[in-house]
Design a protein around this nucleic acid. Sequence first.
DNA 1: AACGCTAAATTTAACGTTCAAATCGAAGCG
DNA 2: CGCTTCGATTTGAACGTTAAATTTAGCGTT
Lengths: 341, 341
Amino acid sequence: MARVTLESVARHASVSTQTVSNVINAPHRVRPETLARVQAAIKELNYRPNQASRTLRTRRSRLIGARIEPPRDGVNGAVLAHFLQSLTARTQEAGYRIVVFTATDDEHECSLYEQLLDDHDLDAFVLHATHAGDRRTAWLTERRVPFVTFGRPWGAEPEAAERHGWVDVDGAQGTLAATRHLIETGHQRIAFLGWPEGLEVGDDRRSGWSALLAVSGIDTPAGYDAGVPDGLDTGRQAAAAMLDLPVPPTAIVCASDSLALGAWTEITTRGLRPGVDVAVVGFDDSPTAGVVGLSSVAQPYDEAAAACLRMLQELLATPEPPAVPPTPVLLPPRLVVRASG
Amino acid sequence: MARVTLESVARHASVSTQTVSNVINAPHRVRPETLARVQAAIKELNYRPNQASRTLRTRRSRLIGARIEPPRDGVNGAVLAHFLQSLTARTQEAGYRIVVFTATDDEHECSLYEQLLDDHDLDAFVLHATHAGDRRTAWLTERRVPFVTFGRPWGAEPEAAERHGWVDVDGAQGTLAATRHLIETGHQRIAFLGWPEGLEVGDDRRSGWSALLAVSGIDTPAGYDAGVPDGLDTGRQAAAAMLDLPVPPTAIVCASDSLALGAWTEITTRGLRPGVDVAVVGFDDSPTAGVVGLSSVAQPYDEAAAACLRMLQELLATPEPPAVPPTPVLLPPRLVVRASG
DNA sequence: AACGCTAAATTTAACGTTCAAATCGAAGCG
DNA sequence: CGCTTCGATTTGAACGTTAAATTTAGCGTT
């Protein structure tokens, strides 16, 4: 039950191992009839090139690294799980494999990059949860390691945004769509429940809401714009404060499903009906949203994964990463309307 | 910026490359003072062995394969995500990496095993969602590929259960604990909402409920034992049927959070209060359960992952898998009591 | 002093692949 | 007919590591 190697294929087809190698890596260099003969031999013996020796020779492993998150809040954890699932499926079709790892913080993550590069010669990385002052992108760029991020390079100067390939979902567009939907269904008092200012993703999502209200000539009274840390309890408390205003909002757009579900809990506890008495829209379309009938803005995971793969292939097509990075992709999210609004 | 190899370390420490190799792989073979000198050189140059060449030579890659699921229902998908997270963290500490992949069915999964073994010389696999007539375990056993399963070998003859290492969570114990808790809080009319008979995991969970009721002398009227496909809607319909019985149950033990949340929805829609009017207990402790206050049986992911790693290490300690497989591990789940019961 | 024995180190070869250079054969051309 | 050119194929070497065989040095025994 010895292993099938280039050598055995070569003997079987009466050519040199190099010719077999050429059949696989540079078919144009070999005469059509030899090509056919060798390909037949490959098929017959069910030959499959050994990656370890390839890696040793070429420094390419066809392995791509991706960090997986500690599940945090639970509600939002599904975002990464979905994305990873799509990414794995997509890259697998293209002959790559995803190697996962966990890290405690950015610095730890960088040291893992180093390990993975040294040990296993990983070809590239897919990053997510990018944030202002992210050290990871600089680290990788310095070392000329191919990578793409799911999440745009927040907080950098505009031109820096073009320094590496990234894929992201347009949060502002999502909250804008949610707000538009609420206006169209008759709401005029629409609040935003988000994170403290300064968190880029949250500010982005807030901007969709505020921009549309501004052009629609709808004003936002004091207390209609909350910023609290992500979570069910914080969301619930902030929603309570809003509902206790002299003129409470009739609809709340939220920066996450966690916050939205917090608001949802407060609303139902007060005996109010979400979507009838007070509308609520979340963000990320977590499984929980589907269960309780929470409207939410859904991210197109699969498209995002496909875009990441395309960029990676672009980066890996040449030995050295190209001077001009791939053009970023900003995907539109999709509003899923359910009972809550 | 040339790479650090055994060769460079050897030169730096004035020994042969083989000695450096021995320092790393068989330190007892080298004289203490040489050992120290070489170790210093390794540290100074920040040497890290290249895995590709190791793999080429030894057929060991320090890579472990694990399939990830299409997120299915959404609610239950979190089980795997949690387990994978723990598994990744644990194996990473032990110097292994997890390679993930997706498969459409068992047969496809086996063909991926073959690919991964041939291409990347994976050392082992971690399987989950085992079921009766699972072809995967046979496939791997035949080829003497090391693996462990998260999930016991269902439906096999008893002695076959000892043919490979497995880790599982005792479902019967979980539903039994849930049922006991309900009895202790005064319930006497306790129904079970599970899957159709014949699905092993479901039958196991059902048995905890029925066994405790039997020894407690509590009888189960017709309609108190439902078996429907997993899902929110099916769960809701089955719960509706139970609530419409002449003598409806006051508590429902469920085989999954999906079913339980379906029941929960039916209960709240009727204006009843979960935990006050009708108690509900789910299984898997999904994030959604935490949000809506559903009591649920939680699986000890991290312990399960740790047990899997221990078994893998046992299997990989010797070149050939040992004749006697590791002893199985059956972990107790933990009942998380919330508002719903 | 010759002998065997062990520990410690070195040398040799091999894992499977691809790159670079060399070889071979057939055609083209003056 | 000899010389060049070009395409197709082969040869030789190398990637970084470890298993197996070999050499060297040191020690105790008789």
